[in-house]
């Protein structure tokens, strides 16, 4: 899922300077699961904003709403009633959701309440880790299911580097060396032959370097 973190409160307050009526818009997708932008977080942030503004003697009116997803036009549509009533929307979705909202509601400022941070998963409740950097050409077949791009600090394709010590990465003794993990796993899978062939230099055009990406399922095009 896409992981996000709530922006610092003061930064959010600044974005809303001079605005009297907003919608705080949650998203029922990834950010609900990672506890940063769902229904509950909408209620928490709205309550905080009302209090902070009341305290300044400059109250703000807030409509609280959470859409099924903000990255899908059919759900974004459902914010129409709310959008016509407010001066701005504070979106608690990931960056994609914020932009889908902005594309649909052309005359309405849509502000981000989160910093979208990475693609990952939950190790346990409330604890999220990065696992993929969307390189566009997945190498997990060769690396025992462990991503060298997202999990090696240097994104090495033929590791480990000389800094790997006792299974830990040289940038931080708390971080596992991805290449040690890859080696251990390839060994236990009896796939060390995949390690002995060099991986070619990465073609970053399939990543962001090739410009914004799209994915089209032809049979859905009309």
């Amino acid at each position: 899922m896409v992981i996000g973190e709530r922006k610092p409160f003061d930064e959010i307050m600044k974005m809303l300077e001079g605005v009297k009526k907003i919608a705080v818009m949650g998203c029922g997708g990834c950010v609900t699961v990672c506890l940063t932008g769902g229904h509950d977080e909408v209620r928490v942030l709205s309550s905080q904003l009302r209090m902070a503004r009341d305290k300044e003697g400059n109250p703000i009116e807030i409509i609280e709403k959470t859409l099924e997803r903000q990255c899908d036009p059919e759900y974004v549509e459902q914010a129409e009633g709310v959008a016509s009533e407010v001066e701005a929307v504070l979106s608690m979705a990931c960056g994609a959701g914020v932009q889908f909202m902005a594309e649909r509601y052309k005359d309405l400022p849509i502000y981000p309440a989160l910093n979208t941070t990475f693609v990952g998963g939950s190790k346990k409740e409330g604890y999220y880790v990065e696992r993929c950097q969307t390189c566009g050409e997945c190498k997990l077949y060769f690396t025992g299911g462990i991503c060298p791009i997202a999990r090696c600090s240097k994104s090495l394709l033929n590791g480990p580097c000389g800094g790997s010590t006792n299974g830990k990465c040289e940038i931080d003794p708390e971080i596992d060396c991805a290449w040690q993990l890859i080696l251990d796993r390839l060994k236990s899978l009896n796939q060390m032959d995949r390690y002995s062939s060099m991986m070619p230099i990465n073609d970053w055009r399939t990543n962001r370097d090739g410009g914004p990406r799209k994915m089209i399922r032809e049979d859905f095009q009309r």
Partner: peptide
């Protein structure tokens, strides 16, 4: 208890 309950009381 959730943060929302506690915040509401303060609010």
């Amino acid at each position: 208890i959730t943060p929302v309950f506690l915040l509401r009381a303060f609010e």
